[in-house]
Lab assay of single mutants.
Amino acid sequence: PDDEWKERLREAEEKNNWKLFEELARKAGVSEEKIEEWKRRWS
Results as ranks from 00 to 15, higher is better:
33 E>T: 07
31 S>P: 13
20 L>P: 02
27 K>L: 13
34 K>C: 15
28 A>Y: 12
25 A>P: 00
22 E>V: 11
11 E>T: 07
42 W>L: 04
12 A>G: 03
18 W>I: 03
19 K>P: 12
40 R>M: 09
24 L>E: 07
16 N>V: 05
18 W>R: 01
19 K>G: 08
7 E>W: 08
3 D>F: 11
18 W>A: 01
5 W>T: 05
10 R>G: 05
28 A>E: 04
21 F>R: 01
16 N>I: 06
23 E>N: 05
20 L>V: 09
33 E>F: 05
35 I>D: 00
4 E>M: 11
7 E>P: 05
40 R>W: 09
19 K>A: 14
4 E>L: 13
5 W>R: 02
39 K>W: 10
21 F>P: 00
2 D>R: 09
40 R>N: 10
22 E>D: 04
1 P>E: 12
9 L>G: 03
36 E>V: 04
14 E>Y: 12
4 E>W: 15
26 R>H: 03
37 E>H: 03
13 E>P: 04
20 L>H: 09
28 A>D: 01
36 E>M: 11
31 S>Y: 01
27 K>C: 15
5 W>P: 03
6 K>P: 07
13 E>N: 10
23 E>G: 03
11 E>V: 05
20 L>I: 08
31 S>R: 03
16 N>Y: 07
43 S>T: 12
36 E>Q: 12
22 E>R: 03
25 A>E: 00
24 L>K: 03
9 L>Y: 08
37 E>P: 00
8 R>N: 06
24 L>A: 08
9 L>T: 04
30 V>D: 00
2 D>L: 10
9 L>I: 07
41 R>T: 08
23 E>W: 14
1 P>G: 11
41 R>F: 13
21 F>I: 05
30 V>T: 02
27 K>Q: 13
10 R>Q: 10
40 R>G: 07
32 E>R: 06
10 R>T: 06
6 K>I: 14
3 D>R: 09
24 L>T: 06
15 K>W: 07
25 A>H: 01
4 E>P: 06
18 W>H: 01
11 E>I: 07
6 K>F: 14
12 A>N: 04
37 E>T: 02
23 E>P: 00
1 P>M: 13
27 K>V: 06
25 A>C: 13
39 K>R: 14
24 L>N: 03
21 F>E: 00
22 E>P: 00
37 E>Q: 05
34 K>V: 14
30 V>M: 15
34 K>L: 14
27 K>R: 13
21 F>W: 12
31 S>D: 05
23 E>I: 09
27 K>W: 12
5 W>H: 04
32 E>I: 05
28 A>G: 05
34 K>S: 06
30 V>N: 01
2 D>Q: 09
34 K>G: 03
15 K>F: 08
31 S>W: 01
36 E>L: 12
39 K>G: 02
1 P>H: 11
19 K>M: 09
43 S>K: 13
36 E>P: 00
29 G>M: 02
35 I>S: 00
5 W>S: 04
15 K>C: 15
23 E>K: 06
36 E>W: 08
30 V>L: 13
40 R>K: 12
6 K>C: 15
39 K>T: 02
14 E>I: 14
36 E>I: 06
25 A>K: 00
34 K>R: 11
41 R>D: 06
20 L>N: 05
1 P>Y: 13
30 V>I: 14
24 L>F: 12
41 R>S: 12
16 N>K: 13
43 S>H: 14
14 E>C: 15
10 R>C: 15
37 E>W: 08
6 K>N: 11
29 G>H: 02
11 E>M: 08
10 R>E: 06
34 K>F: 12
37 E>F: 05
14 E>W: 10
42 W>S: 02
39 K>Q: 03
2 D>Y: 13
10 R>Y: 08
19 K>Q: 11
35 I>V: 02
40 R>P: 01
28 A>M: 13
38 W>G: 00
17 N>I: 08
32 E>H: 04
1 P>A: 11
31 S>G: 04
18 W>C: 07
12 A>E: 04
32 E>N: 07
41 R>V: 08
29 G>Q: 02
10 R>N: 06
17 N>W: 13
14 E>G: 08
17 N>T: 05
13 E>V: 15
11 E>F: 06
15 K>A: 14
41 R>L: 15
17 N>V: 06
41 R>M: 14
5 W>A: 03
41 R>P: 01
14 E>L: 13
12 A>Q: 04
35 I>N: 00
23 E>R: 04
7 E>V: 10
25 A>I: 05
14 E>F: 13
32 E>T: 05
29 G>Y: 01
9 L>H: 04
22 E>W: 12
39 K>Y: 10
36 E>Y: 06
11 E>L: 09
14 E>T: 09
28 A>Q: 05
2 D>I: 11
25 A>R: 00
20 L>E: 13
6 K>H: 11
32 E>Q: 08
18 W>P: 01
7 E>T: 08
13 E>H: 15
26 R>L: 04
21 F>Q: 01
10 R>V: 06
41 R>N: 11
29 G>L: 02
41 R>I: 13
17 N>L: 13
43 S>R: 14
36 E>G: 04
5 W>M: 06
19 K>L: 09
33 E>A: 12
5 W>E: 04
26 R>T: 02
25 A>S: 02
13 E>Q: 15
40 R>A: 12
3 D>T: 08
9 L>C: 15
33 E>R: 06
10 R>M: 10
4 E>N: 10
25 A>W: 06
38 W>C: 14
23 E>L: 08
42 W>T: 01
16 N>W: 11
26 R>G: 01
15 K>M: 14
22 E>Y: 13
32 E>S: 06
8 R>Y: 11
39 K>M: 07
2 D>C: 15
11 E>W: 11
16 N>G: 14
40 R>I: 07
22 E>M: 08
33 E>D: 10
38 W>T: 02
1 P>K: 09
28 A>T: 02
32 E>L: 06
18 W>Y: 03
33 E>C: 13
25 A>L: 15
17 N>Y: 07
32 E>Y: 04
33 E>G: 05
14 E>K: 13
32 E>P: 10
4 E>Q: 11
5 W>D: 04
17 N>F: 13
9 L>W: 11
37 E>R: 03
36 E>T: 05
34 K>Q: 15
18 W>S: 00
34 K>E: 13
20 L>A: 11
20 L>M: 10
33 E>L: 04
27 K>M: 14
27 K>E: 11
17 N>E: 07
5 W>L: 09
31 S>M: 03
15 K>E: 11
41 R>E: 12
1 P>L: 15
29 G>S: 01
9 L>K: 03
15 K>I: 08
22 E>I: 11
38 W>N: 01
6 K>V: 13
14 E>S: 12
31 S>E: 04
19 K>H: 11
33 E>H: 06
29 G>A: 01
15 K>R: 10
34 K>D: 13
10 R>L: 11
30 V>S: 01
6 K>T: 13
35 I>A: 00
36 E>H: 05
7 E>S: 09
20 L>K: 06
9 L>A: 08
19 K>E: 12
15 K>D: 09
2 D>K: 09
25 A>F: 05
4 E>I: 13
27 K>T: 06
8 R>H: 09
32 E>V: 05
29 G>N: 03
7 E>K: 11
25 A>V: 05
43 S>M: 15
18 W>L: 02
43 S>L: 15
40 R>F: 07
39 K>E: 02
43 S>I: 14
27 K>D: 06
26 R>V: 02
21 F>Y: 04
42 W>M: 05
4 E>A: 10
9 L>S: 03
39 K>S: 02
43 S>P: 09
33 E>S: 10
5 W>I: 06
12 A>I: 07
42 W>F: 13
35 I>E: 00
4 E>T: 10
33 E>M: 05
21 F>S: 00
34 K>Y: 07
26 R>P: 00
43 S>D: 10
14 E>V: 10
2 D>A: 09
7 E>M: 09
1 P>D: 12
16 N>T: 04
13 E>D: 07
40 R>C: 14
43 S>E: 10
24 L>Y: 11
2 D>S: 12
18 W>K: 01
37 E>M: 05
38 W>P: 00
38 W>S: 01
16 N>F: 10
7 E>Y: 05
11 E>P: 03
29 G>T: 00
3 D>A: 12
27 K>I: 10
30 V>G: 00
38 W>Y: 11
3 D>L: 10
22 E>T: 04
6 K>M: 14
42 W>C: 10
16 N>A: 07
22 E>H: 04
11 E>Q: 09
29 G>F: 01
11 E>A: 09
20 L>W: 14
31 S>L: 03
13 E>C: 15
22 E>G: 02
23 E>H: 05
38 W>A: 06
26 R>C: 05
5 W>F: 06
27 K>G: 07
30 V>A: 04
38 W>L: 08
8 R>M: 14
13 E>R: 15
19 K>F: 09
17 N>R: 07
34 K>I: 14
12 A>M: 08
9 L>P: 03
38 W>D: 01
35 I>L: 08
19 K>C: 15
8 R>G: 06
26 R>N: 01
38 W>Q: 01
5 W>Q: 03
42 W>Y: 08
